[in-house]
Design a protein around this nucleic acid. Sequence first.
DNA 1: TTCTCTGTTCATCAGAAATGAACAACTATT
DNA 2: AATAGTTGTTCATTTCTGATGAACAGAGAA
Lengths: 253, 253
Amino acid sequence: MKDETTVIQASITTLRVAEALKHLEGARVTELAAHLDLPKSTIHYHLQTLMKAEFIVADGDEYRIGLRFLDFGEFVRDRVELLGSAESELRKLAEETGEIASLMVEEHGRGVYVAREESESAVRTSFHTGKRVLLSQTAAGKAILAFTPHERVEEILDRHGLEGKTRNTITERNYLVEVLDEIRERGYAYDDEEWHRGLRCVAAPIRDMDDRAVGAVSVAAPLSRTRGERYKRDLPEAVLSTANVIELNMQYS
Amino acid sequence: MKDETTVIQASITTLRVAEALKHLEGARVTELAAHLDLPKSTIHYHLQTLMKAEFIVADGDEYRIGLRFLDFGEFVRDRVELLGSAESELRKLAEETGEIASLMVEEHGRGVYVAREESESAVRTSFHTGKRVLLSQTAAGKAILAFTPHERVEEILDRHGLEGKTRNTITERNYLVEVLDEIRERGYAYDDEEWHRGLRCVAAPIRDMDDRAVGAVSVAAPLSRTRGERYKRDLPEAVLSTANVIELNMQYS
DNA sequence: TTCTCTGTTCATCAGAAATGAACAACTATT
DNA sequence: AATAGTTGTTCATTTCTGATGAACAGAGAA
């Protein structure tokens, strides 16, 4: 597996500037230069480039990500076929459980939340649609991995590793493989404070005709509301049932 | 006003490839090469670059825009402060009128729809959130222009011109200025099939303390439902009232 | 098989991206 | 006000890299 793909460095830098601008929630030339460890002049030219292409905007004395990205974002969102079959079911799941229900798909070996519905009583966590996470760190991600061919899983783990996020995050490869086996048997996955302290999730994969995961539904709830039977039986049942309906919807569209 | 800003050509090309990929709704190397009039090899390297940065994805035998843009898109959407004050009001407006209600802001001299709500009976037009249009071609855009300082309006018109879209689109600068004066007096703007055949819109600006437009609300309805008083009185009233509430909401947040 | 498409790789070369220093335009401080 | 310390922009220079067409390999189609 060769990693030295020939890419255009200048473009990579421009994209990194955009990324940094998002990460810093707006920034000025000097700040970006420090953050990316590049000369001010270099940053300047890359910002000019992004401005000319209208991907960023100058707001007062700092640069920010522009609405052009919204255009692209909504476009790509509409291209996720799963969404059509899933959105209304997700809403029902959120209402029924009183928590946050979300839909994840895999891309470039990462998990991406493409939809999210929350009820009034849901916990306030700050992950928006589009959020990218490591598959190994979330219930939905593990549900996806469990129903992904072995070689592909290996590839993904090679590429992204197993970064620890909380004290519960799985960081050992062998252990992860065991967990995935369990999930495959059981049919659904747990996240017991592995991604965020105080937060537990239950997720079920959405599979195609070949039994490959095309995504996963998950419910996220605070520790305090995931005691006993609710965590062991009720939430899994709700999530599984939702995943099942989505799978059926998919087939008739 | 010098236009020859020094930009990085390689990056511009990469961004153009992304743009083309969106426009073509996914494409292969050869198709892109033809569309952008560049050698296949050049396209190849730019695609590799976008792939490595995970901004696009290879789907079967073609490349597509990736979900990374969704991350950026949602991020920038959350940064539009207006939205917090406007979203619920927009929904009410959509229900009340039974049409499509949307919110536009200006960026880089263009109009960008940042929110959109539709009722069941609304006409099916295919413009999604994030859609960028010429300000002169829409009711919301004209409402914004009418409450934008003269010099800035001149700048915008110089940059983007007055492209015709339907037979009703305003293409004469002097006439547009007249229309903007009317709008300023009247307080709201019309779009009489100027953007899309068979579609009429009514829009009102949302203004800040300095009377400058920070956005506009608009209602879009099919020609058949915009006869007589509804077009002349009811819709304007509804839109104005919504804009007013949003302005008030803004001040207390 | 042969032909005709793909997309990828290669070698070459012009020219463009990166850079630090110099400059100008502001703020803050005194 | 004057000054010192910021900032962002411009400039000249040099190296290295992005662009290119041709050659190549791989997949279907004929």
